[in-house]
């Protein structure tokens, strides 16, 4: 029976050779791993390229520009692509997105930041381990289910309270949207609050402050960049959200300041009309243009949030 020493003696000269022993399988695996990490980059680039490819005619093609150009987008309020005189006024749609998002943030920010503060600063230990999973359950509810709930239940409920002329409106969609973004803001804010070093909180308490003073004056202010990043990401999510608004907002592209009027958002416009649009038509290009705008917007939002989080990390490390 060969033991290690005899096997070794056979390979004596291979000890510490002046050339690396070439293990083919390992080499291949490492190359595969390296290459697969490019998929993420490739994905972003491809999304960029192909969405802009279909949106480009809005800027470059003269036929398309007759119907829909950057000027025309903002010179008219009407969004009426399916008609003898197609209009591609984006103002109403953009404002629709704005209305819904404002309502959503209005409800989501206090609730999620408040709950995050409670979880990280005041909640007893046993409860803490309970709250986070519950919020994650809320995060796990698909947006189509939230939209369904808003359509079937919430709309009538709000209607009975507010007696709005339109049952499906910006308020309805906004509230349902807030359900979707509460977990987003909550988890980032709670993480930020948690990463405030205990020593800071203890210093505050040792100076005679009580728990809520410490929470608001120390924890919240130190964690503010993180909380802010959470809100920014919630904003991004809200702008891009489709199913909820598609089902709960009424889908009427009208411009009005009343939150109880129906609205059309950018994302819902795409979803509602992409199914019937003629491939290659101006309408088609405009829909992709709206998609491209959404994509750019969320890119900016994400980069902003990352910048803010970077600030928080440097602050905690003492570099600011």
């Amino acid at each position: 029976m060969e033991n290690l020493k005899t096997i070794e003696k056979k390979h004596q000269s291979e000890f510490v050779i002046s050339k690396k022993r070439f293990r083919l399988s390992e080499f291949i695996i490492e190359k595969v791993i390296f290459l697969s990490s490019f998929f993420a980059i490739l994905g972003v680039i491809l999304i960029f390229v192909f969405i802009f490819r279909e949106a480009l005619p809005v800027f470059t093609s003269p036929e398309v520009k007759k119907e829909a150009s950057l000027n025309l987008f903002f010179s008219t309020v009407t969004w009426q692509p399916i008609s003898d005189d197609p209009r591609y006024g984006l103002i109403a749609i953009i404002f629709g997105t704005f209305k819904v998002v404002v309502v959503a943030l209005f409800f989501a920010i206090p609730i999620s930041v408040g709950a995050a503060m409670y979880t990280s600063e005041f909640a007893p230990l046993k409860l803490k381990e309970f709250i986070k999973p519950i919020v994650e359950i809320l995060a796990g509810i698909p947006s189509v289910v939230l939209g369904f709930f808003a359509l079937m239940v919430m709309a009538s409920f709000f209607h009975s309270i507010f007696h709005s002329t339109m049952r499906l409106n910006a308020f309805n969609a906004g509230v349902a949207l807030s359900f979707a973004i509460i977990p987003v803001i909550y988890s980032i804010a709670e993480d930020a609050l948690n990463s405030v070093p205990r020593s800071l909180k203890e210093a505050s308490l040792a100076l005679g402050a009580n728990r809520w003073q410490t929470a608001f004056r120390v924890s919240l202010s130190v964690a503010m960049p993180g909380v802010l990043a959470g809100i920014i990401l919630g904003l991004g999510r809200a702008v891009g959200e489709t199913m909820i608004v598609l089902m709960a907002s009424g889908n009427a592209s009208m411009l009005s300041a009343n939150i109880f009027d129906s609205v059309r958002t950018m994302s819902a416009t795409i979803a509602a009309e992409l199914g019937e649009v003629v491939h290659g038509s101006a309408h088609y290009n405009v829909l992709f243009f709206i998609g491209a705008s959404l994509f750019i917007f969320t890119l900016i939002i994400n980069s902003l949030a990352q910048l803010v989080v970077g600030r928080l990390q440097r602050k905690l490390a003492g570099k600011i």
Partner: peptide, 24 residues
């Protein structure tokens, strides 16, 4: 760059993915 790409993919609206699926 990879991390940047992963982070941004996470933020892309789902309808934009739908457009991408169609267009690409």
């Amino acid at each position: 760059t990879i991390r940047f790409a992963v982070n941004n993919l996470a933020g892309v609206p789902s309808i934009v993915f739908g457009l991408f699926g169609l267009g690409f």
